[in-house]
Design a protein around this nucleic acid. Structure first.
Lengths: 159, 159
DNA sequence: CGCGATGAGTTGAAGCGTCAACCAATTCGG
DNA sequence: CCGAATTGGTTGACGCTTCAACTCATCGCG
C-alpha cells in the first residue's frame, strides 16, 4: 500500500517510526497520569487541572471561559465538571458583579486542601514518566518540538 | 507554592515549560486528528486504526486481542467498536476454526474501500501537523524522546 | 429608550469508554 | 476422561464528553 504512485506522500520508514512513537505516547501517557491521580486523590486529570488553575489565581477564583482555556477543554465540559466539583464541595460558582453574564468559579478551603494534597503525587508522576526519563538536552528538544507541532495544530493560540 | 522545602521536587522553569508544551500537544493533537477523520470520512481515529490494522493483515483479518493491542485499546472497547463497525457493514466477526474462544475480525470490501478512501487524508494530516512541522533532526529526536517516555510509562511492552 | 444582535454559560440527550460481571471454549491435573 | 481453572471475548450499566438548543445579560444602533 506504500509503493504505488498515487499522488499521496506516504510516510517514509523513519517518519513512520517517529510518528508511531509519538502516537503511542499520546495514547498511553494521559491514561497513566489519569490513573495515578484517580487512584491517589480521586480526581480526573481534567478536574485536577481546573482546581490547580483556580489555586494559582488571585482570590482562588477565575471566570469559566478563562478556566476552560487554561485546562484545554470546552466551556460545556467545564460547566459539567464544575457542577460536579461544586456538588463535592470543592468549588463554588457565582455570577460576576460587574457583568452578569460572567460566572466566576472559586476554590473552597476543602478544594484547596484537595489540590495541595494531590499535587505532590501528580508532580512525582510527571517527573517519573517524563522529566526524569529524559536528558536535559532532550527536554529542551521536546519543548521545541512540542511548540512546533502546537503552532501547526492550533495556529490561532500562538498570538 | 514552589518555594517551600516540603520534600517535593517541584518542576524547574525549563522542566515546566517542556512539560506544558508536551501537555498541550497531548491534548490538542488527538482532537485535531480525530476531527479531520470524522469530518472527511466519518471515522473515529480509533475506528480508523482498527480498520487500518485489518487492512494490513493477511486475509484482511486478525484476532480481537491482537487488534486491540495494535490499536492501543482495551479488548472491551474494541468489542464495542467492532460491533458498531459490523453494523455499518465494514467488518465481520467469526469464531476461529481451531480455537472456538478466539474471534477473528475481517474487513469487508466496503470496509476496505472506506480505509483506502480515508488513508490519504489522514496521512496528510499527520504530515501537516507533525512530520512537516519538524526538521529531520527533530524527527529523530522525537522518536528517541517518545521511546524513552514510553519505556517509563509502560515498561512491560518493551520486551 | 427599545429592540435585535452578540456573548457567556447552562442544560439535556446521545454516543463512547470503562469497569465488573458474565459466558463459552479449552486446557490441565488427577 | 471429568471437573476445575484459565483464556478470550461479550455485555450492560454507569460516568464523562460532545453537540445543539436554550437562557439570560449586555451591547449597539436607530
Amino acid at each position: 500500500m506504500t509503493g504505488e504512485d498515487d499522488g499521496v506522500r506516504w510516510l517514509a520508514p523513519d517518519e513512520l517510526a517517529a510518528w508511531m512513537s509519538l502516537a503511542a505516547l499520546m495514547f498511553k501517557l494521559p491514561g497513566a497520569l489519569d490513573y495515578q491521580l484517580q487512584r491517589d486523590s480521586g480526581l480526573t486529570h481534567f478536574e485536577y487541572l481546573v482546581m490547580a488553575g483556580l489555586s494559582e489565581s488571585p482570590d482562588r477564583s477565575r471566570r469559566m471561559s478563562e478556566l476552560a482555556g487554561f485546562a484545554n477543554g470546552s466551556l460545556s465540559r467545564l460547566s459539567h465538571v464544575v457542577k460536579r466539583l461544586e456538588k463535592r464541595g470543592f468549588v463554588v460558582r457565582r455570577p460576576d458583579v460587574e457583568d452578569g453574564r460572567i460566572t466566576v468559579a472559586e476554590l473552597t478551603d476543602a478544594g484547596w486542601e484537595q489540590v495541595v494534597a494531590a499535587a505532590p503525587g501528580h508532580v512525582a508522576a510527571v517527573r517519573e514518566y517524563v522529566i526524569d526519563a529524559l536528558t536535559p538536552e532532550q527536554l529542551a528538544q521536546l519543548k521545541e518540538i512540542g511548540d512546533a507541532i502546537h503552532r501547526k495544530v492550533d495556529p490561532g493560540r500562538s498570538c
